[in-house]
Structures are given as C-alpha cells and as structure tokens.
Amino acid sequence: MAESNTRIALITGASRGLGRSAALKLAEQGMDIILTYKDNGNKAQEVVHQITALGRKAVSLQLDVGDSGGFSAFAGRVKGALLDTWQRDQFDCLVNNAGTGLQAPFAETTEEQFDMLVDIHLKGTFFLTQKLLPLIRDGGRIVNISSGLARFSFPGYAAYAVMKGGIEVMTRYMAKELGPRGISVNTIAPGAIETDFGGGAVRDNAQVNAQIASITAMGRVGLPDDVGGAVAALLADGTHWISGQRIEVSGGMVL
C-alpha cells in the first residue's frame, strides 16, 4: 500500500524539457509521478528510472494532448495506474505542461497552424483537465503553463502567444469554479529557456541567447530547472492559498 500521505502529481509532456525537470524536482520533494509522453517512450522511461532512483514511484503513459478524442481512454489508463501502483483512485496535482511552439509572422500564419495550436494548448488543456477532474482529489492543485510572450510581444509568436493568453484566462475560471472543492489553480509563465523547444534556438544560437540575456534582469536566459523548481515550489505544502494567479518565471525579462 502507498503511504497515506504520499502525494502524486500527473505531468503532461514530461519526457524532456520543462516537464522532465518539474517531474524530477517534485520527486526530490517527495512526490510520486505519473508522466506522459507523445512519441518517445524510451525517453519517458529514462525519467521513470531517474525518479525511482530518488526513492519515489513513477509511471509513464502515452498521450497526445492534441487529440481530445483520446482523453476518456487516457483517464481510464490513469485510473488503472493509480489502482495498480498506489492502490488509490485519485491523484493530487495536475501540471498541464505539454505543448509545442510556432514561429511564424502574423501575416503568414496558416489556419492549419493556428488550429494545431488551439487543439494542443487550448482545447487540450481545457478538456483534458475536465476529463481528469473526477480523479483529482478535493484540496488538490492544478498548474497550467503559459509563457512570458503573453505579457511581452516578439514578432513571429502571435499565434502561440494568443494560446497562452487563453491559458491565463482559463486558469482564472478554473480557480473560480474549482475553488469550492479546495482545488487551487495557477499559471506559471516561463521566459526564454534553453531547451529543444522551437528548434532549440535559445539554447543553440549564441546571438539569440545573448540578445535575450541582455533584456533579462538576471543577465542570462533561463534553464529548465529554473522553471521545474518554480513548479515544485508552487506545489509545495505552504502555497495552497495561492490561487488564480499568473507567476512569471523569466528572470525579469523586458521589465
């Protein structure tokens, strides 16, 4: 049987990048993890092994957040994993992290590109959370991932930023409507981070990296652990009274 006080977090898109960092930081904090991946099951399994090496339990499940038709079946798999691994029927924290980027001028963004982002970021977050609500315990937590681009504007990110602006509005409504169950809901909005996101430009292009560092108060671009650590801090015991908030984790970009 699982320890009665064991907390379980479900993190989407946790085989790499920010999701992976959040999973490991939460495991270090004593949480068990259900993590999802879209295509790379081997990478997800590596994260599972890293979590178990920390003395925690972890399960990886395949999920395409852009395919809302699969959410009911996914919720069933989550329920099965909870019963098999933890002998429980609910988890504690949901981190809606999975996503994809798009860099295209406003005038050249296609309807197909826009619809793809809607399916993944807006429709995915909205309806996946809805399907998982019966599995989230009263008093639980939800963290949605936005972007600094919902506050400041860089050419080429109009469609992506529109989705993240929607995430921030959605977060406030979730917080309002789930508050009676004691569920807090917040947004974390990362700034530019050194990952493979968006083709890895921030990580791999020295000119882009330096330009972002020059407009960031802390004098550098972000690292995955900067955001993973913030997610873990927001899900720690002392922060449950924070709800409906947007917390930017950008090192002070464009202040």
Rank of each mutant, 00 (worst) to 15 (best):
A44D: 04
V95E: 00
D67P: 10
D64M: 07
G99D: 01
T109D: 04
K38G: 03
L128F: 04
C93L: 14
Q90H: 15
A44E: 04
V59I: 11
C93P: 05
P105A: 11
E46R: 09
L102K: 11
Q62W: 07
L35E: 01
V95R: 00
Y37Q: 02
A98E: 01
D115Y: 12
S60T: 08
F106Y: 13
L83I: 10
G124V: 00
N97H: 11
Q50K: 11
R88V: 10
I33E: 04
D32C: 06
I33V: 12
L82C: 05
H121M: 03
R88W: 03
I120G: 04
F127V: 04
L102W: 10
L63Q: 01
E46V: 09
Q29T: 10
S68H: 11
A107Q: 11
K43A: 15
F114S: 13
L133I: 15
F74T: 00
A58Q: 03
F114Q: 10
M31V: 04
D89F: 01
K57W: 08
V65G: 06
L63A: 03
H121P: 00
Q45I: 05
T52G: 04
Q130D: 08
Q130K: 15
H49T: 13
D84E: 14
V47N: 04
G99R: 01
D84H: 10
W86A: 09
G69N: 13
D115F: 10
T85L: 05
T129S: 15
S60C: 11
G99C: 02
T85A: 07
L83E: 14
L63D: 00
M31W: 12
I34L: 15
A104Q: 15
L132A: 14
A58I: 05
T36W: 03
Q130E: 10
D92G: 03
E112I: 13
V65Q: 11
T110P: 11
I34K: 04
C93N: 13
